[in-house]
Amino acid sequence: MNQDINNIDKENDGLQDEWLTKNLNFTQIAPPLDFTQKVMEQIEVKPNPLSDSPIFWILAAIPGVIILWLALYSIGSLNISYLDFVPKVTNMISIYALSKYLLMITFCGLFFIGMDYFISKRLSHRESFFSSLMI
């Protein structure tokens, strides 16, 4: 029973503390069986859903390639004798050409992803259209 029981004014209200303590305990409502699991699902840190998607790899690859090119260009401009092949590489692929090809690949990739999304929406099993073709 609550040790703080004499703290509340309860004259003539018809109920007894012991009775309330005993019987209100029967009224505890059990949450659904999957309650803990649902809480755990919300707490767990989920990986970025994009990391499974080709969009993630396209978006990650573009800055990656550009950064690599910039790094090579910077190294090439230092005129280090034993790294004289580096400026040749960067001169061979200009930043303009690099951007052009990257944009082409990106738009092609996005086009196929978009097409796959809209086609797979019409499939009853909701799989990727292209992956279902491969199987």
């Binding site: 609550n2 040790q3 303590t21």
Partner: peptide, 13 residues
């Protein structure tokens, strides 16, 4: 308040 006081035995404080 009744739930906290009687069911869980929380003090007034």
């Amino acid at each position: 308040l009744l739930t906290l006081y009687y069911m869980d035995g929380e003090s007034i404080g």
